[in-house]
Structure formats: C-alpha cells, structure tokens
Amino acid sequence: MAAITTIELVLLTVISAATPLLLAATGELVVERSGVLNLGVEGMMLVGAVSAFIVMLTTGSWALGIVAGAAAGVIMSMLFGVLTLFFLANQVASGLALTLFGIGVSSLLGIPFIGLPIDKLPALDLPLLGDIPILGPLIFGQDFLIYFSVLMIVVVHWFLFRTRSGLILRAVGESHDAAHSIGYSVIKIRFLAVMFGGAMAGLGGAFLSLSYTPMWVEQMTAGRGWIALALVVFATWKPGRVLIGAYLFGSVTILQLHLQGLGVQLPAQILSMLPYLVTILVLVLISRNAARVKLSAPGCLGQIFHPHS
C-alpha cells in the first residue's frame, strides 16, 4: 500500500465522521419526501447500534451485524409507522417518544455487552486499486458501510427523480389527497418510506458501533440523529446536498479539533460552535432564493393523512 499522507488521514477522519450522519440523513430524506416527519432518528440509530454490536459479537459475522442493525431500525420505524399512519398520531410527538423509547430499549439490550471490544469493520480489500497513490487509500480503502452510504445517495437520487415509483413517492409527499384520488395507496407508500428510513438510521447506528468506534456504550450516538435531521433540511430535501452537508459538517468538526491542536487562541467552546454556525450560514446562502427552496420542500410534510372515502 502506498504511504498515506497526513492530508489523506485527515480526509479519512472526515469521511468516517460524516458517514453515520449521511446514512441516517439519506433515510430520513426519503421519509420526509413521502410527507412524513420522523424525529425518532436518534432512537432508531441507538437501537441499530446496539443490535448490530450484539449480533456481531455473538455470531462473529460482520454481515449479520450490519443486517441486524438495519433490521432493528426497521422494527423501530414500523412502530412509528403504525402509530402515525394507522393510528394517525402526531408525527412530531411520536418521533420524540420513539427516541425516548429507543434510548431505553438500547440501554436494556446493551447491559451485558458493555466494555467488550470487537475488531473494527474491515476495509474492503480491493486488490491493486488500493495501491494507487493518494487516491488509493482514500477511495479504495474504505469499509462496506462507507461505500454503501455514498452509493445510496446515488441510488436515492436515481429512485426519486428517475423512476416512476420515486415520482409517486414524491407525489404522495407533495399532496396526499391528490395522490390518493388518483388511486395511490398513500399509507402503504409512506409506510415503506418510513421503513427505509428506519433501515438507514439503523445502519447509521451500526456504523457507529462496528466501524467508527467499535464498541457499545449507552447513548453513544451523542446527538448524531438530530444532526442528521438538520442535514435533511439543510439539503433542502435533495440527496446530493445531503452528501455535501454531511461532509461539510464533518469537515468543520474535524477542522476545529485541528485548530485547537495547532494552538489557535480561541476558547474551545467557541470553536465547537463552528460546525453549527457554518451549517446555518451555508443554508442561509442556499435558501436566499425563495422560489427554489419552496419547490423542494414536500407540501404535506408532517401532516396527517386519512383517506376520506
């Protein structure tokens, strides 16, 4: 393998810091595009993280661990889906309750697994490609979930804007009554979207407990679910911008740590504010053009749908 330069190492750090946000935000983007606002990302990530860790530790299989993380996220999201889509419960409150529930569930499940180490999710071994100077380790030396997170941006973009199903999903999010009157099953489509969001949040959690910091400790998400939610808004519901947002947020976070290491004379707390302030600033710049933003915000986001026929 080619010698890795410091710049590459820093970029690698940024990539791994951004990936959990990217995974969870991509899922939430699809959910919101279908008109549902699920604020329970943090809870789904936690349950995904603990499940992936437990399964990996007990079976020794990375693949099963990843699948378990996704599956756990799906189960959590189905709970949310049933509440909000069948029992028409308020989405914002249900999402927050889901997070409380997820914190509790993950803490219970994880009790026997605290303090046990596992190996880090290995990088996919791509022969030859990994030896390419500079780009090699950066592009071809990553683990499965990192590739998957970027791939899903492409897939979700293609799905939403290039397929008929994606068009239907967006139509449902834009106006559920109209979509319903044409004959689409609003509830079914939204439920599937919510499940997809759960799977992606679960994978975001799995990335935390298998790759980013391979361990289980309670509440290890430390608020990343909330940042993922903010990134969907930041992205104005466009997949490509989620990628930009996640990497921007990750970069500024890492940058402020480096600035401290370099001895910049600013209070650490002020530097810690940078990722949030930069994100706000960039969104302000993006959304100055009112017309463009309005076009992409799903019209029925957060509204309860009940077929009146």
């Binding site: 709970l79 509440l83 029992f87 028409l88 419960a89 308020n90 409150a93 249900s94 309750a97 889901l98 409380l100 529930f101 997820g102 914190i103 509790g104 569930v105 993950s106 803490s107 219970l108 009790i111 009940h306």
Partner: peptide, 25 residues
C-alpha cells in the same frame, strides 16, 4: 434499571398519542 423506565415511558406516550385518534374518528 433506568432503561426499563425509559421503555415504559415511551410506551405510555405511544398509547396517549395513538388513542387520540378516537376523538375525531
């Protein structure tokens, strides 16, 4: 353990939120 209390708290909220459907339906 606090985790059980958290799970129960979540369940309580789920029920409270979902039962409200009967007001309008």
């Amino acid at each position: 353990p606090l985790g059980i209390a958290g799970v129960f708290q979540g369940m309580l909220l789920f029920f409270l939120l979902s039962c409200d459907v009967l007001i309008n339906y």
